[in-house]
Computed example of a mutant assay.
Amino acid sequence: MKVNNTLILGGTGFIGSALTKILKNENHYLHLTVRDGKYSDEPNIKHHNISIKAVDALADLIENEDISTIIHCASNLIPSSQFVDFYAENENLILPTISLLDKIKNKEILYVYFSSGGVIYGNHANIPTNETAPLNPLSYYGLSKKIIEGYLHFYSSNFKINHLIIRPSNPYGSDQHKDGVQGFIATVLHKIINGMPIEIWGDGSIIRDYITIDDLAWATKELINKRVQNETFNIGSGDGHSLLDVINVISNITSLTPNLTFSSARNIDVKTVILDIKKLQGEINFIATPLVDGIRNFYQKIS
């Protein structure tokens, strides 16, 4: 079987690390871009200290290593990012991505892009929301995803590049940062274990679709290995849980009482995110881990 030479942009981040773990045993030789040179290579994995802004260096790597799949996990924004952050993202990631697409436009490469199912649809009337819904992001983070998706469609329609767009819901798992910046479940677990106050924006009724990072990585791996291309897939659980529901689940699992504080609701927060995953389930045999089981496994790994 031919080895799939795969480049992961942002390969040591939360999603990139999970994909690395599952793909390295799936006949993939992985090339990971990293932000520093402190990572050690291992069988089937090579690290490259190359910034996404170094477009020429990335293009040379793709040519020299005969890369057939690029997985784009890199992003510097979060849903609460402001215009100044978006402006920097445009210079540091969006424009370099477009330049890279132009460099490789005549190569038959599968470009897998991690967009966002959590913010890109905005407040939509149809819940659960499927992949054909209009894109109306409320945040600069969502806008950045929409822009890159648009360019991927353009280059796939007019050149040899093939795309696979992944719109994940809210992934969580034990390797996630617990600094409160992004990742509600990881943040709440960390704070409840350490007796820290948990800040809720609004009244806690916001509903989100949560998926374990292992489920997300597995589903992505299946789509890549099938060489599904020029398609967009929601990857989530298909179920919704309010913030207070999640906190109650964590409290029951840990037997700890949360210390909650409430702040004013933010206009960047979508009220309800539940992804329609019928298209995904029509392509692969996917069943998401129930929230209670996923949080319990997460807690057991970190406690």
Rank of each mutant, 00 (worst) to 15 (best):
L9E: 13
F14M: 07
I15M: 12
A18G: 00
T20I: 06
L30K: 01
H31G: 05
T33G: 05
D36M: 14
E42G: 04
K46S: 15
H47I: 08
E65V: 07
T69V: 15
I70F: 02
I70A: 01
H72S: 15
H72Y: 15
C73G: 10
N76K: 12
S80L: 14
S81H: 08
Q82A: 15
Q82Y: 03
V84M: 10
D85Y: 01
Y87N: 15
L95F: 07
P96G: 08
T97V: 13
I98S: 12
L110N: 07
V112C: 02
G122A: 04
H124F: 08
A125S: 09
N126C: 10
I127Y: 01
S139T: 04
Y140W: 03
K145N: 06
K146F: 03
F159C: 07
I165N: 01
N170M: 08
G173V: 06
S174F: 15
S174K: 14
Q176M: 05
V181E: 07
Q182C: 15
Q182M: 14
A186C: 08
T187D: 00
V188K: 07
L189K: 09
P197I: 04
D203V: 09
G204W: 13
S205R: 08
I206D: 13
K221Y: 10
N225C: 14
V228A: 05
N230P: 15
G236M: 06
G240S: 10
T254P: 14
N259Y: 11
L260W: 01
R266Q: 11
R266V: 11
K271N: 13
V273R: 08
I274V: 06
E283G: 14
F286K: 03
A288N: 00
T289Q: 06
V292K: 10
V292H: 08
D293P: 01
I295A: 06
F298A: 05
